[in-house]
């Protein structure tokens, strides 16, 4: 239905500061409401119409294109600090329609609809002939890789036992034959080393999430898994601006499963769960 008096709307430039401000509010809204997957960043503003509102204010109708970043939505890192997933990594694009009400210079989202789709295999092949493509998340090899990686992580973890929360992304690498998987985990009230029956463990009331990247290599007569997990500080109910330094990524190195557990550089024991970022490498 037309908004405001009649069909009069104005069409500012898509690169106007005001239009960009509206688009950035929209992208923030996406990243705060995405239930799973990865944060998105603004790529292009396709179209904008501004309708006058009664008794005051304006309604911005805006179409934007976004690109997926490498930060999971559970990662507290601000999206400005997140790297855009590149074409050769099988990029994912978002296509969104928003309506934002501007009153007293402040935007608020009234309507949001987004679709996302991975780049085509042909486009990925154009920039990198041998790069792996995204795999279905319910592929048995992907599920097995995530479960094996989490088991390896829990077996070496001195803290609480973690359960699989979501498989977020996976690729089947042809050479060497391996499965790369990214997934999120959630802390439970069991101790990792003692948790014999995962079913007996319940999730912590104060959710503690982690994000893992793992590769399962298929070897002759066996398999080898390397996993890196970053456990995030338990989030308060509403997301608060992070303290200085809370988002510093700790450099991680991948070690084989047989090596003794190693700890983040500069420490001699595992970080306590309360520290801002706790990366455990196995």
């Amino acid at each position: 239905a037309p908004h405001g008096p009649g069909l009069i709307y104005r069409q500012p430039n898509c690169d106007d500061p005001e239009t960009e401000e509206a688009a950035l509010v929209a992208v923030d809204y996406i990243n705060q409401h995405l239930p799973w997957g990865y944060k998105h960043t603004l790529n292009q503003i396709d179209e904008v119409k501004v309708w006058p509102q009664q008794p005051f204010g304006e309604m911005f109708e805006i179409e934007i294109d976004t690109l997926e970043t490498t930060c999971h939505v559970l990662d507290p890192t601000p999206v400005a600090g997140c790297r855009v997933r590149q074409l050769k990594e099988h990029a994912v694009e978002g296509d969104c329609d928003f309506q934002l009400l501007k009153v007293n210079g402040k935007f608020s989202v009234v309507y949001a609809k987004c679709d996302s789709s991975p780049d085509s295999a042909e486009d990925v092949r154009k920039v990198c002939r041998d790069c792996p493509l995204l795999a279905p998340l319910n592929d048995t090899r992907v599920v097995h890789a995530a479960e094996a990686a989490l088991a390896a992580f829990n077996a070496r973890n001195n803290g609480s036992n973690f359960q699989l929360e979501e498989i977020s992304r996976a690729q089947l690498v042809p050479l060497p034959p391996s499965t790369y998987v990214e997934f999120t985990i959630s802390g439970t009230d069991c101790v990792a080393k003692e948790a014999t029956e995962a079913a007996n463990c319940s999730l912590l009331a104060k959710k503690q999430y982690g994000f893992c990247k793992a590769t399962l290599n298929e070897k002759l007569g066996g398999e080898e898994v390397a996993v890196t997990c970053t456990v995030f500080q338990t989030q308060p109910a509403t997301s608060q601006p992070q303290p200085e330094g809370a988002n510093e990524a700790v450099p991680t190195a991948v070690v084989d499963a047989d090596a003794p557990a190693s700890y983040p550089l500069g420490t001699s024991e595992p970080l306590s769960a309360g520290s801002p970022i706790d990366t455990r490498v196995f």
Binding site: N13, D15, E20, N43, L67, E93, D119
Partner: peptide, 27 residues
Amino acid sequence: SVVQPSVGAAAGPVVPPCPGRVRHFKV
């Protein structure tokens, strides 16, 4: 005498208002 009709001319290249600039790359 023969006079040319006045023809309007754009001051410079007309930048289409939309779509806007691509900040990263197009998929």
